[in-house]
Design a protein around this nucleic acid. Structure first.
Lengths: 148, 148
DNA sequence: ATTTGTGCAAATCGTTTGCATCTGA
DNA sequence: TCAGATGCAAACGATTTGCACAAAT
């Protein structure tokens, strides 16, 4: 839960070096705002953020970045495989920093996405995909409601 | 007025009488536009429609109905359990006329939702829901991409 | 210097809402 | 009658886009 980020310049190459390479490898220029956002996203364990939430976080951390850039960045990260957009029936889009094979709870009352605890859920008996298609991935959403 | 509130008779492609009862049972007044939309929705087998698509269909079928009413109606049907909103990562909301327990393909290249052929897909090893929550339902989305 | 990213505001898109007008029971 | 439905247009929230400016290579 460390939040304080050096606003902008990162002369200390501790973990921003890794991020820089990560971005470069993904074909993205390691700019200030991309590095900052990447830091917010990837240095706090697995997260599920909306663009708006990340933007607010950035502002609070005194990282000057516009909402448009946050959207751009999230999509670029998503396409680069650094993030994963989660499919939930909600007006907003959520991005998951955990790109490994796993599934989600969706808490209806809070509009919140949570990882399903490790390695639970097994999907078997998958159907044949239609002609000319292949399975890109399988998403399981366990929708939770408040116990009545 | 007819008195039946049984569930035995399903109207797939019959008259609007069955639909009228269906709506009445759901606590919805069987108005012209609701009956017409219900007819479009339920007399053609299982469908996955967006509000806009259904609206266009209605216009083409010379059923005068506003887009706002289509939205209202879809949501009312959804809450009444006559339809099911499908969670896909897409800007639009899709409604499924098949309310039974089943799962979906999502064809990325066409932004289209399709039922998974009967009774395929088994989900096991479901996790314990967090304290105070219960599982409302489990959705599986098999995302398909064009075979490369 | 050239290319790519960024910020801002305006534009878009899907969806919702306010309100005056209709309609079905 | 009269609560409940409908249509329209304006309002809305999330996301995108156009373009001038700034930063990275």
């Amino acid at each position: 839960m460390q939040v304080s980020s050096n606003n902008g310049l990162q002369s200390s190459e501790c973990d921003t070096i890794g991020l820089g390479d990560k971005l470069r490898d993904a074909g993205l220029r390691p700019t200030r705002q991309r590095l900052s956002l990447a830091h917010l996203l990837f240095s706090q364990g697995n997260r599920h953020v909306s663009a708006e939430a990340l933007h607010e976080e950035a502002i609070i951390a005194r990282i000057p970045v516009s909402l448009a850039t946050v959207y751009n960045t999230l999509h670029q990260f998503n396409e680069a495989g650094l993030l994963r957009a989660v499919a939930v029936e909600s007006s907003k889009t959520y991005f998951d920093t955990n790109t490994s094979d796993h599934h989600h709870f969706f808490i209806e009352s809070e509009n919140r996405v949570v990882d399903v605890p490790a390695s639970h859920i097994t999907v078997t008996d998958l159907p044949e995909p239609p002609e000319g298609k292949e399975i890109a991935r399988v998403d399981v959403i366990v929708r939770l409601r408040d116990k009545s």
